[in-house]
Write a protein that binds this DNA or RNA. Structure first.
Lengths: 159, 159
DNA sequence: ATAATCCCTGTAGCAACTACAGGTTCAAGG
DNA sequence: CCTTGAACCTGTAGTTGCTACAGGGATTAT
């Protein structure tokens, strides 16, 4: 990332894909997938054609996994990487991207909270008899029994 | 659902797939999809082979859409439908399923809230200079800068 | 009769991986 | 040096829950 210079010389351990994966908390398949979609640059290869990695790759993949853990889409990660690769540029765009993501997370939070409330209401209202008198089934079958008329946010994509 | 008897006789309007879709807030493709995966039973057909629906289908599809809006997986909806189709049985299983879902929603809520906090922290800590000194990029690149050591819940599937 | 909708099937695509199958390479032990 | 077993390779298909065609046939209104 910010220091792509003196690294292969210093702590120059060379890793196979499995060890890289282990050290970054993902699977070899995922590493290959990231290479395939261009998040990781094409790895150098051993004589026999196996991928070889250095500490730079560990850093880059750590960044990627970390950003993904934060819920950023792969496209967003691509942009974040692009920015991280250009340290001299202003970080306005980083800010915008992250703030936008934050807004999305907040809206998901609200919808999810509304969902939880409705589910809780359903559960507490069920007396525990037969299905025919079950409040839960009733609520699911009849939209009018919900507190929030407008479809709970549609629940579409609450990630 | 609970009253599958006197309906086709009374308000016996017959619908095409488009109108059914409109009345339940989804698309014809989705209706066909639900039929394909067995959530909706195979529809009767017109002479020319087009699907024809009655009010029962409207109710069933409403139930499905509603359950999906509540965030239940298709498999869970399948089970809920199965239960709704047997009104004389006890509703314990419904309860279990919904409570389980509620727990999942609550855990997602917590992880999402932690995520939001971390994102907020990142945003407020960024002074707004160049990328090389951007706190956001820094945090993304270095796990140790997070408040919560263990990977924010992995963020895996926060739906 | 004819146009404008509707509807049909079947397939491919989205995100972001994961899971094989069937074959090759590597590193260590004998 | 040779063998074994683990790790690795490519390429394809599966996952979830739909959505979007393409290339036709059916229905309905004029």
């Amino acid at each position: 990332m910010s220091d792509s210079s003196a690294s292969s010389a210093l702590s120059g351990r060379i890793l196979g894909i499995g060890e890289l994966a282990r050290r970054t908390g993902c699977k070899p398949e995922t590493v290959r997938y990231y290479e395939g979609i261009g998040l990781l640059r094409d790895a150098s290869r051993s004589e026999g054609g196996q991928r070889r990695y250095d500490e730079d790759a560990v850093r880059r993949l750590t960044f990627i996994r970390h950003a993904r853990d934060f819920g950023f889409s792969v496209d967003a990660v691509r942009e974040l990487l692009e920015m991280a690769d250009h340290p001299e540029m202003p970080c306005d765009e980083v800010d915008v991207l992250v703030k936008h993501h934050l807004e999305e997370v907040e809206s998901r939070l609200q919808r999810l909270a509304a969902l939880r409330d409705e589910l809780e209401r359903m559960v507490t209202q069920c007396a525990g008899g037969k299905v025919e008198s079950c409040r839960i089934i009733e609520v699911l079958g009849d939209h009018r029994l919900c507190l929030r008329e407008e479809e709970h946010g549609g629940a579409g994509d609450l990630r």
